[in-house]
Amino acid sequence: MADENNTDEREEEKISPWQQMIDNPFLLLFIGVAMPTVFYTLWGVMEIASLPVAPY
């Protein structure tokens, strides 16, 4: 058992950061919520909120 754990760890060292990201659901959850919140929601809300009042 101890042996197996060791190989696990050694292999993990070589694993690319992309794979580590893909294997981490909570990191993905953060990205998946942050992206649309920033680019879609916040950006959109700011544009609507900053519209000028009709000039007449």
Binding site: L51, P52, V53, A54, P55, Y56
Partner: peptide
């Protein structure tokens, strides 16, 4: 081009 406007103001226009 877009503006915020109230119904009364727009109706008057």
């Amino acid at each position: 081009e877009a503006y915020k406007v109230t119904p009364a103001k727009y109706q008057a226009k």
